[in-house]
């Protein structure tokens, strides 16, 4: 038997050493260079998305079955709560309509555009693979550039913000979820308007850091995107503030612990970065030259507009 065959044992040992070296090289290369395997990763996403989508169909059907069963069980008590909520919402809707009319009138008088920048267009997709690993919190969705998805677009569920696109292929996209270690989102408290950064930490409760005013944040505050980063639109719902261990504040995400199947992507184009050629030094020099020209021509101390 081969177990006693020293030649075979040597071959296995050599194979193991080669495999270890190769795996270590790949691991280190991928760690140090984000672009090293980018094309391969994108190609794998393209291939895997339809396969995983097809394979997840029976799983989704089973989930739906249990979900429906659970919903039916509590339908009666939910119906009572929903009726009460409906009466309250009817009143709130009437008030909101009046407020909207007032707001439109004020906008007209002030000639101000204070509308939301959340796009009205939605690109629907299905989350075919969701990873809750100790290092990665990502998802694969079955829509890509052919539907207009680009890197940075926010991904939503009915409950709130889910993440943003970090890699867009033709038919699939990779979504970095809010809990991922690399996720950083500009947020604000809808109660106090205080801003901060939501930093993912590979747990269910991302941390609130870089708070503009720590005293303005309180447990229970509703958290939305602030739009300060210029990457995501303002006002996307995220979750509620909770107190974490070590007396730090975190966010209980609206999307956490809920089945994620259908999502939509907002085709939000971030605020464009100013042209790189127009750096600060050039702007100052241009300003000085223009000022000198004007001074010479008019023989007076007139400064050009925009350069105080």
């Amino acid at each position: 038997m081969y177990r006693n065959d020293p030649d075979s044992t040597n071959r296995v040992t050599i194979a193991l050493i080669v495999a270890f070296v190769l795996a270590t090289v790949i691991f280190i290369t991928d760690k140090n260079s984000n672009r090293a395997f980018q094309k391969s990763k994108s190609m794998t996403d393209q291939t895997a998305a339809p396969v995983l989508s097809a394979l997840s169909t029976p799983i989704r059907a089973t989930e739906d079955f249990f979900s429906r069963f659970k919903d039916r069980r509590r339908a009666l008590e939910e119906n009572i709560v929903l009726k009460q909520e409906l009466y309250q919402l009817r009143e709130a809707k009437d008030r909101a309509n009046i407020m909207a009319m007032k707001l439109a009138r004020f906008e007209q008088i002030l000639k101000a555009d204070i509308g939301t920048d959340i796009p009205t267009k939605k690109i629907s997709a299905r989350a075919v693979s969701e990873i809750d690993g100790p290092f990665v919190r990502a998802a694969l969705i079955n829509a890509g550039t052919h539907k207009g998805i680009k890197i940075g677009h926010p991904v939503m569920t009915v409950d709130g913000l889910y993440g943003h696109v970090v890699r867009a292929g033709i038919n699939s996209s990779r979504v970095l979820r809010l809990g991922d270690l690399n996720s950083r989102i500009a947020i604000m408290s809808s109660n106090s308007q205080a801003t901060a950064i939501l930093a993912g930490n590979n747990s269910d409760f991302p941390e609130i850091s870089f708070m503009s005013d720590a005293s303005a944040w309180a447990v229970g505050d509703v958290v939305i995107t602030s739009g300060d980063d210029g990457v995501l639109p303002r006002g996307l719902p995220i979750g509620t503030v909770i107190r974490r261990a070590k007396n730090t504040l975190g966010v209980e995400l609206n999307v956490e612990r809920k089945p994620i199947d259908w999502v939509w992507v907002y085709p939000f184009d971030p605020i464009a970065v100013p042209e790189e050629s127009l750096n600060e030094t050039e702007l100052i020099l241009d300003g000085v030259n223009e000022a000198e020209t004007v001074q010479t021509e008019n023989n007076s101390l007139v400064q050009p507009a925009g350069n105080p």
Partner: peptide, 29 residues
């Protein structure tokens, strides 16, 4: 077959790293 087993395990580790967007080689190791 042990050598084939090592190759298969290597490839499947890499496949899962690709599918889960994890650092390549992490699961393989």
């Amino acid at each position: 077959h042990p050598v084939i087993s090592i190759i298969v395990i290597f490839l499947f580790g890499l496949l899962l790293d690709f599918l889960t967007n994890d650092a390549l080689g992490f699961r393989t190791l």
